[in-house]
Computed example of a mutant assay.
Amino acid sequence: MIQYQNEHVTVFQSALFQTTSTVIQTKEMVLIVDPNWLPNEVAAIQNYVHAIKGERETYLLFTHGDFDHIIGYQAFPDATTIGSLELQNHPKKEHKLKLIRDFDNQNYITRNYPIQFPELDIVVQEDGQQLQLGETTLTFYHAPGHTADGLMTVVEPLGIWIAGDYVSDFELPFIYQSAKAYSQTLEKCCMMLEKHSIQLLIPGHGLATSEHKEMKRRLEMASDYLKRLRQSVIANDEPALEALYQEHAFLSSFTEECHKENVSIMKREYL
């Protein structure tokens, strides 16, 4: 499903977890971000890219190495791949591939491309590192917290902010790596809004937005949640922790496990 489209940007949204896949086209290139989930959804992105690319080079950007975000990697074997140094050195590559295989096997899914962990052609090692493609500039920012290998990208002069699994319109923070790093990444997001002329924010899950007020609301929502979670953990306030869990959208065994992980990491870092 296409959830957002203009002259330069098409944002596809999966039926699963409202996960986004983005295709950006400029005079110089076509950039594909996190193609996912189901085979027919990946095929729709493939067909779209094939229809628009012409003679332009294609680039494939990974925001991080969670299995839903790398699942479509080999559907674009000729693309130049981009990701963080931490993604290149991911310590659990085989585990991520096992999650993909398990998902496909449990759901009787077959794919017409091999399942592999991304091999990167362009490795982002420094915060603020840039890639110049003609008149298009990609500026990369490390975004740890959710995962250690997170990467945010600003595409200029279009003013597109590719945020990965941050600043969703509905999804509260899932802390898989570090609560402290997550808070620092949110502070970096505020800096990015000040430094760049952002025209469109695209999260990894949920709706894209062009409204600056909405971008700030999402950042405040995530920051406030982390603050209250930290306070509740330090105070050992079980009713408050349960209330925080109830704030998650789409309550399920999955969100319950994510909440427990959030609490566990907060305890490890603040107690």
Rank of each mutant, 00 (worst) to 15 (best):
Y4W: 13
E7Y: 12
V11W: 03
S14W: 01
T20S: 07
S21G: 00
T22Y: 00
I24T: 01
E28W: 08
L31S: 03
I32R: 05
D34I: 02
L38T: 09
P39M: 08
N40E: 14
E41Y: 08
E41L: 11
V42D: 04
A43R: 15
A44E: 13
G54E: 10
E55I: 09
E55K: 12
T58S: 11
H69M: 08
I70F: 05
F76W: 07
I82K: 01
S84C: 05
K93D: 07
K98S: 14
Q106H: 15
I115H: 07
I122C: 05
Q125M: 11
G128C: 09
G134A: 11
Y141G: 01
T147W: 01
T147Q: 06
L151K: 08
I162Q: 03
V167M: 10
V167Q: 05
L172R: 03
L172A: 00
P173I: 01
S178Y: 01
A179C: 09
S183N: 15
S183K: 15
L186N: 00
L186K: 02
C190K: 12
H205R: 12
L207K: 15
L207D: 10
A208T: 03
E211F: 13
H212L: 10
R217M: 12
R218E: 04
L219M: 14
D224R: 14
D224E: 12
L229C: 05
R230Y: 09
R230T: 14
S232V: 07
I234P: 06
D237H: 10
P239A: 10
H248E: 06
T255S: 14
C258G: 13
C258Q: 15
S264Q: 13
M266R: 03
K267H: 15
E269I: 10
